[in-house]
């Protein structure tokens, strides 16, 4: 399945990371009470910890696609985008 991507969609395999947090829909993984953490059953603290998976997935994709020329509208100099992307707060 490594056909060249059609021009309208700019694909990178990093995007597949975005599917990882979907494990949170597989309830049998975490539908149990032990082991508890600070008295909180596994079901609850596992899903709270799952928030990190979403943050990691989107952060990695952001960093990995940042240097790629995401925008190539006709006209502008490439350094305009680079400048804006450098302005991380």
């Amino acid at each position: 399945m490594t056909r060249p991507a059609p021009p309208s969609i700019r694909w990178t395999n990093w995007n597949l990371l975005l599917l990882i947090p979907l494990f949170m829909l597989v309830t049998p993984i975490f539908n149990r009470s032990g082991p508890a953490l600070f008295g909180i059953p596994f079901f609850y603290w596992f899903q709270l910890a799952g928030v990190a998976s979403g943050v990691l997935a989107t952060s990695i994709v952001y960093v990995k696609t940042r240097t790629a020329p995401t925008a190539t509208p006709p006209g502008p100099e490439p350094d305009v985008d680079t400048l804006d992307e450098g302005a991380v707060r």
Partner: peptide
């Protein structure tokens, strides 16, 4: 009880899912 906790997985998976379409 537990059934109400769906709000958490919901708000975790939403951002990776909409990441590309929103752009």
């Amino acid at each position: 009880g537990a059934a109400g906790y769906f709000a958490l997985p919901y708000t975790v998976i939403v951002y990776p899912l909409v990441f590309m379409p929103l752009l």
